[in-house]
Design a protein around this nucleic acid. Structure first.
Lengths: 229, 229
DNA sequence: CTCCGATTGGATCGTCGCTCCAATCAAGCT
DNA sequence: AGCTTGATTGGAGCGACGATCCAATCGGAG
């Protein structure tokens, strides 16, 4: 046997002229995730979009989870940068929560990633802001820790739920209306004797607005927190 | 080239005497998940543990996600079967929520799976129970839908959070105490000027009990609900 | 006893994340 | 300019994964 095959001419594919950077990779990853969901972010897709190889990417990024985390931090940081302060602490809190809600609504993969890594440094700012606002609401210091944690859990819980719905919608390639109709039809089919409330809720499922329901939940918690003093 | 290598003798590995079943597969999958976390459930590991092949497993199960969903339903159903009813609707609700909390604490992968598929049929019973209890707590019919959804989101949010922590603990092979010490140390290192509340919360992190904090959140919710009447 | 559908085991496929290394470039030194 | 050295790039290849496919085997109905 010959030790070498007939070698290709010694030319490699042309080397890129503009230099790669961590930022460019993260930006491209975000594009892929936004357009195709979590499963669209593969290293192969990245190499194609950036017309480069694995080595170049791994030189700037530790591994895939590092890349996902960095993209998530990027989005979260942007949300916090756009946060505004109202005169009423309750309103500010509502705004803050809605900001995270909307961001995850626009980038569902962020919700899934946060559910996997809930203590990213970028969320420290969120936690800090919430605690500060609870202070302004006269929540006693001993209860503030639990209250802030509860709010965080609720917001993240809704975020994850929304991300799951969005993923389902993307996979099934159906629009939101027919998805809700389908779910409502299923709920309406359950035995009314065994599940009277679920059966009754089927109609509301079609009308409800995720964003408003989220805000209703925030208000429930705010009311409960106000009684902690 | 020869078309066939020297074939092994025509004997196949001995066929199993006891028959496989969907239940046995689900049970084995649960064992694998409990002992090694989500990544431990691979088809190869299943074939080894059951000393069988891929075909036999795929004959009883549609695909891997079907298997994961079935295992999750199994756990949830068990939790609901053990639910008890107190005289006070509040206590019953607390028990119900704690049941789910403890189940996910014992099987963290259930939390991760529920975050991916939050509308499993097994959760319908949960939803129904919650709505029934909210009715007993005199929550008006128009607010019941939002309130029930809010509580569900909160419980699932905490569940996901717990699952993420458990996963981290399993991967890092550290115990909970040193994990909390580590996290507290990190929180204590953040700039006290920029993050006064996070900095102050560092000490509480070491003392706090996840279960109690979860219950504190449920109580905040219950207080908030009481104002809805 | 015979047959046929139900069940089983494993070879094989395509894709994934990741490692590894030769090839290439840019910047500094003499 | 020529040389050197470290940073950066591109891609072949590895092992593991989920899934498919099919020959081999079993067990009950007739």
């Amino acid at each position: 046997m010959m030790t070498t095959m007939a070698k290709k001419p010694a030319t490699r594919a042309q080397r890129r002229t503009d230099s790669l950077s961590r930022e460019l990779i993260i930006q491209t990853a975000t594009d892929l995730l936004d357009s195709g969901g979590e499963s669209a972010l593969t290293l192969r897709a990245l190499t194609i979009r950036l017309s480069t190889g694995y080595g170049a990417i791994y030189h700037h990024v530790a591994d895939k989870s590092d890349l996902l985390a960095a993209a998530t931090d990027d989005i979260i940081t942007r949300v916090l940068a756009g946060a505004v302060t109202e005169t009423d602490p309750r309103d500010t809190l509502r705004r803050l929560a809605l900001g995270l809600f909307d961001a995850i609504d626009a980038h569902p993969w962020v919700g899934a990633e946060l559910s996997r890594q809930p203590w990213r440094p970028a969320l420290l700012d969120f936690y800090e802001s919430i605690a500060r606002l609870l202070d302004a609401l006269a929540v006693p210091e001993r209860a503030r820790f639990d209250a802030a944690g509860t709010l965080m859990n609720y917001v993240l819980g809704v975020a994850v739920q929304n991300a799951a719905n969005a993923r389902y919608l993307a996979d099934a390639e159906t629009d939101r209306a027919s998805f809700l109709d389908n779910a409502a039809a299923q709920w309406a089919q359950v035995d009314p004797a065994r599940y009277p409330f679920v059966h009754a809720a089927a109609t509301k499922l079609r009308e409800h607005d995720d964003r408003e329901q989220f805000l209703a939940g925030v208000d429930i918690f705010l009311t409960g927190i106000a009684a902690l003093r």
